[in-house]
Write a protein that binds this DNA or RNA. Sequence first.
DNA 1: ATGGCCCGTAGAACGGGA
Length: 285
Amino acid sequence: MPEAVQAPLRLATWNVNSLKVRLPQLLAWLNTRTVDVVCLQETKLPDQSFPTQELLDAGYQCHFAGQKTYNGVAILLRTARLGAADAVVTSLPELDDVQKRLIALTTEGIRVVCAYFPNGQSVGSDKYRYKLQWISTLTQWLRSELEKNDQLALLGDFNIAPEARDVHDPLLWEGQILCSDPEREGFRGLLALGLSDAFRLFEQPERSYTWWDYQNLAFRRKMGLRIDHILLSPALSKMCTACEIDVELRRQERPSDHAAVVATLMHREAKAHHAATSKVHAAHH
DNA sequence: ATGGCCCGTAGAACGGGA
């Protein structure tokens, strides 16, 4: 009797740019996609205003760290698939920060870290220095988290376009905020912890981006940046079978300026079964 | 050719986003 094939686990990240405005879209999205872990950024809601009941009705338990007007992060867990969350933290332990930019929890043995990196505003500004400091603090904290958890996923709005191919016009953006060398070094520092950029584990279409300016018909003209990412520890990278940007969210009426990124994880047995099934299909064509 | 947004907090513009 073959072992039952476990369904894939889907992890997603989406900067909603106000959860109050985007809640109907989020609920519709959750209804049509099977995503098990959903990381949200820029909820812009104090905790008492978080739509816990609506999301519970939609099948998700909520963990969040919010504030009025700015920032705010959340992790939603699909209750039909995932049990209770452990070891929830709502800030970087080493950083005394009023800005709500991080939440982490453990579910099914996976350490899920949801991050909203500072934007930085402009290179050389106070906000830029804060951004670099924040990234450095995150990196140090993740180093210790990885010692305790070999299954770790870092998802969120990194506000960093790692390479030229992640930018619609690399010359225009060269050295600018989101693309400067120190920011990109920060991104590489995260990879140096052993994390992999899930999106780049696979062949991807050219001009794949996750953010487009609301102005200048940027979305239609494919003038975007890839700044939202899913980074996976080696143990999870091995299980990753797909990573995609969901641009449908950006096509809708009154969209967030960000698209979602979704990664699929399968256990080895399931992956082997999947590969075998694909071969059978291929043989038929 | 140029510039054109959106959100929250306001209760009119403005700061922030990226």
